[in-house]
Design a protein around this nucleic acid. Structure first.
Lengths: 239, 239
DNA sequence: TCAAAAGTGTTCAGGTTACACCCATGT
DNA sequence: ACATGGGTGTAACCTGAACACTTTTGA
């Protein structure tokens, strides 16, 4: 029973035959934050099977391109942005997930500052939709999106990645609103402010919001350098 | 510039040509726990490039097999075990990572109870090595292993997955030793016991260790059912 | 002057840490 | 009897949660 497995790709030189070959793609869940909602960048599929349904941004990975590079390429071509926060999440490979054949897709999520995108998005087929308000999606993209939202939540609890969704200058209200929309929970304003200010990682810019019809909020920026220096690891078993 | 990307695999019917095809494999980081150390199951590679270096258990995924199924297959064929805890971690696709050509590999980690394996491992080429004591590994397997250790740490902090590495009946000392070896830290015995006993998820079996030359420890089992019922979600931003 | 959101402290409960001595068993 | 690890409690500290009023601005 085990003999057929004593030789394999990790231990012996075997030829990669055609019947081993499948296609690889990357799919990007591009998150943004606007109007106090977590948004995701989608396009309408024209495939017969999924006509008009929302689809993630993705593309085939040719054999001479790195996975991360493929994701960056998709993202750059669609949004015009460089230096985007991008992270691999999970690989989806159900046999029948794509009508064109066996296409295994590596899912990434990206965090972009929507203010930097305005005007750059030349592609009119792209839409920013609220994550909690979208209907049927093409392929297994709903599943992919769910996995990315979950991962985003985990990351935002453990690391300061959320700031990639905000402008460089932001108010504490915007920050709180971001956390509330990602976690789907209201948070206490005083406790939230206390928490973030006590980290001593928000730099008070001594600037204020403009054009609001109420008392303007102070603007802050996140001090990534300081964060990198003082990051601590504390074991907290919580399950 | 964007025209070449308006048609792609998510939006239009395109043919998957040969020059898009690459090979997919799965690699399993099989963790075990013995002699107070976290162990990993490895095999020696016979590939010329990596002669004698340690390699993970992996195999090519044929187009008609699910990814998870491929990982289970590798694991079952190597260890004889079913019902193994298995989780996808990350996909590694560096262009030159495999000498046979472009092989993109989906990494999984598995948690097994070493006591259940004794006698089942018919394949003599397999070795259990301590995670912190192994030298050069083949391919990018060191990188894959590191990613899996990191993920294991994250999981063990947030969820009771570690019990999959222990026998059904275990002592608190074994449990603590497991956590210490996974996190590479000594923990206070009294606090550790208090913590786990206060969760009220360990069932006292009213049994004791045997064959120890000191006071025998009580044996417990983890109550997974109770855990599933009372699991709570609490937001704790800690970075 | 009104509407709307900004800004601000204290108290309480629960969890985490640090820490030292007696107990049960086998040899 | 001794060596080895099992088993136990308390006090200080810190963190997270609950909670209401005053301030600033534009309309």
């Amino acid at each position: 029973m085990m003999s057929m497995y004593t030789k394999n790709i990790n231990t012996h030189l075997i030829e990669i035959k055609d019947y081993f070959k499948v296609a690889i793609s990357v799919d990007c869940v591009v998150f943004g934050f606007a109007e106090d909602k977590l948004k995701v960048l989608l396009i309408k599929s024209d495939l017969n099977e999924y006509k008009g349904k929302w689809s993630l941004l993705g593309d085939i990975v040719p054999p001479d391109e790195e996975l991360d590079a493929a994701a960056y390429r998709v993202l750059h071509n669609r949004t015009g942005l460089d230096n985007v926060y991008l992270e691999q999440v999970q690989t989806f490979g159900a046999i029948e997930r794509h009508p064109a054949g066996r296409v295994i897709t590596v899912a990434y999520y990206a965090l972009v500052d929507l203010e930097q995108i305005k005007g750059k998005t030349t592609n009119a087929d792209l839409y920013w939709l609220s994550v909690d308000e979208l209907g049927d999606m093409a392929f297994d993209h709903q599943q992919i999106l769910n996995a990315c939202v979950l991962r985003l939540q985990q990351q935002m609890m453990a690391q300061p990645v959320g700031f990639n969704l905000l402008p460089l200058k932001f108010s504490l209200r915007e920050l709180q609103s971001l956390y509330e929309s990602v976690f789907g929970r209201e948070l206490d304003r005083r406790n939230f402010r206390k928490k973030f200010l006590s980290m001593d990682l928000l730099e008070d810019l001594n600037e204020e919001e403009a054009d609001v019809r109420h008392r303007p909020a102070r603007l802050y920026k996140f001090n990534f350098i300081k964060y990198d220096q003082q990051r601590k690891r504390n074991l907290g078993i919580t399950f």
